[in-house]
Computed example of a mutant assay.
Amino acid sequence: MKAFFDTRQRKHDPQHFMANGAIKPNPEQPERINRLLAGAEAAGCVITDPDETGLAPIAAVHTPEYLAFLQTIHARWQRIDGAGPEVIPNIHPARRSDGYPKSAVGQAGYHQADTACPIAAHTWEAAYWSAQSAIAGADHIAGDGKSAYVLTRPPGHHAFADLAGGFCFLNNAGIAAERLRSLGRRPAILDVDVHHGNGTQGMFYARDDVLTVSIHADPARFYPFFWGHAQERGEGRGLGYNLNLPLARGTGDDDFLATLETALTRIHAYGCDALVVALGLDAHIDDPFQGLAVTTPGFARIGAAIAGAKLPTLFVQEGGYLSDALSENLTATLTGFQDA
């Protein structure tokens, strides 16, 4: 299987993360790249540098206002007397229709949903090349490639069209799906991360040309809390084009696989001809976020089940945090897919 990754994705090195009122080391560390690369190579992936396609494929799903913010906010932030080294919001609008301020502090609150997406000097560069890797993967499977893996780090599925959140800045899976659509494909996004892909849902919620399906821990008491509930089905033209399949905390292999069959049935009903898998490995039983309890053999079964859909498939990396099993979980998923 071909894989895409650019070494500039290492440059994002976030330091801070606030959870339950406590400041902690950020778990979305560059070390994730080393372990994921090892896992991909163990599965036989050939790592390839992406070509640069510019901003247009990214701007197809992200607003120019937001992209300008991401590119300039850190330099502007550093001009504030006493500002910290990372852009972290301390105020938010009550609703998206509220006024758009000129100040860096106000715009940070508008464009960053939470304290888990700090922006440092090299965040934009890393996110940009993560997105370029996803675009390269989409181009590959739209051509002659039947499958590919993209090591997208920083990840993307919590990023809306104009809003960062949950370690995410550019929505790599959404960018890849839109790229496939522009190339004449009918894409679906299947998100198997332990957290709901709220940014992906929001990006396509009123559209009928990209199906979004997410299997995740029930958000009633789990991030992202406000999205990912079963009653969210889309709106307008998109009504019926979004499917959320929340699972009880601690759900293991068999129930996850049964739910995956439901997801794949919906994808088949959509007439999908190119599948983007938002591949979170944080559903693992030993992942630091402790949401679900999928085992390493369970990930192999997930890969095999996805292969059973018989679709050109692009695996786009989402979560999966530092644990002894991270590399093995990626190897299991990709090997399970390829062997099937």
Rank of each mutant, 00 (worst) to 15 (best):
A217G: 15
N242W: 00
F256T: 13
H196C: 13
R233V: 05
R207P: 03
T251P: 15
P219M: 03
D254Y: 02
D208N: 15
N198M: 00
G252R: 11
M203W: 02
D191C: 05
R249K: 13
G202S: 04
R186A: 07
V194A: 10
P224S: 01
A220E: 08
Y205L: 10
I215P: 14
Y223Q: 03
L245P: 04
E235R: 10
G234S: 04
Q231M: 01
V192K: 05
G252S: 12
T251Q: 14
G197C: 07
D191T: 06
Y223T: 05
G202Y: 02
A248G: 00
Y223I: 13
D209T: 04
G202Q: 05
D193I: 06
F226W: 05
P219A: 05
A217I: 08
D193Q: 05
F204A: 04
F225A: 00
G240K: 11
G240C: 09
R221H: 13
F222E: 11
A230R: 14
H229R: 06
T212L: 04
F225D: 01
N244K: 06
F256I: 12
Q231D: 09
L239Q: 15
F256L: 14
I189R: 01
G252P: 01
F225Y: 15
G199Y: 13
E232Q: 10
E235A: 14
F256W: 13
V194T: 06
G250A: 06
G197A: 11
G250Y: 07
T200H: 02
D254S: 14
D191R: 07
P246S: 09
Y205G: 05
I189M: 11
R185G: 05
H229Y: 03
D218H: 08
V213T: 12
D255Q: 08
L239M: 14
A206E: 15
L190T: 13
I215Q: 15
L211K: 10
N242T: 11
G252K: 07
R181D: 08
N198L: 01
H229S: 05
F222S: 02
G199C: 10
G234L: 05
L243W: 12
L243C: 10
G240V: 05
Y223R: 04
H216C: 11
L247Y: 04
G228W: 00
H216I: 09
D254E: 15
Q231S: 00
P224A: 02
D209M: 04
G202F: 00
D254N: 13
V213G: 13
G228M: 01
V210D: 08
R221N: 14
H216E: 08
A220V: 09
R186Q: 13
N242R: 03
L183R: 07
Y205N: 06
H196L: 02
G238F: 06
H196S: 03
L247N: 01
T251F: 13
D208V: 04
G236C: 07
G199M: 10
